[in-house]
Amino acid sequence: MNSSFAWLIRRELWESRAVWVAPAICGAILIIATLIGGLQVGEVRIANLADPAVAAKIEALGGDAIPRLSRLLLLAIAVPFYITVMFTQFFYALDALSSDRRDRSVLFWKSMPVSDAATVGSKFAVAVLVIPLVALAAALLSQVVLSSMVALKLSGTELEFTQHLWTAGTWLPAIGATLYGALAVILWSVPLVGWLLLVSAVVPRSPFLWAVLPPLAVALVEDVLFDSSYFIHLIAERTLGVFAAAFSGTEQVGATVRIGPEDGLPPRVEHLMQPVEFLTSADLLGGLVVGALLVAGAIWARRYRDDNG
């Protein structure tokens, strides 16, 4: 059974190349953007670090400023990968249980001695584990590549930055925060992936429209009838809200990473993480329960749905 499950996972990867293509594109964009000088956290552009005036400003912050800033920059590199994960999960999960009904190949898959629970389970595992882990690997690789690019750019200068680039003190907390961010994205995505798998298993066709239009309609009706936007906020919270839930003060990070003594030192990356609050929050635990119910619903729907729609 275990090796059979591994084949189900492999099957998913044969079909859905976006699992690794999407993070690869994300990494490529980051690298190109850095080369052009566009990558920015607060007012720090990586390409600007070689600018003596900018460098001088940072060094003027003194003390711990440079390693703190380095760690934040490394974590910031991971953020676009987390967002890529959400997009990839969205399209993957919507397609997972509907495309084979559309082309009728579901009849071939169902002719194999594989239970519907194993099939849905393999798709759930790809969405919540494989996609984030591949993106995590790409994020870590990008951190190394982008750091190397900075090192190359700063080589030959006397800047203090170069001394902190490759130290364990910079990297260990940054990698820790990156892994923690990936864990948060994984756990947070469970109910959303469950919902998308259920939609994918149930609707006769056009899962994208079914997943997107009803929530939009609800939000519109809410706006017209009650002049409120609770539902839109709920959706935002269940998606991008992961950052606010897992990290504290994310909204201030951009503002705090100012270059200049008057704005104070950048925050320590390890102080941004709030794992205990996050892992015990009702939002997360409730989401996991709802996600499990939705996946059970998707398994049930997979059993009675076939090519007849």
Binding site: D100, D103, V106, F108, S111, M112, P113, S115, D116, D307
Partner: peptide, 21 residues
């Protein structure tokens, strides 16, 4: 079904092998 499919094969019709495979 899963257990049954160890002993039963079927060809629904010719077009059902997935095109990307």
């Amino acid at each position: 079904r899963a257990k049954l499919m160890q002993q039963v094969s079927f060809i629904a019709d010719v077009a059902v092998l997935p095109r990307w495979l």
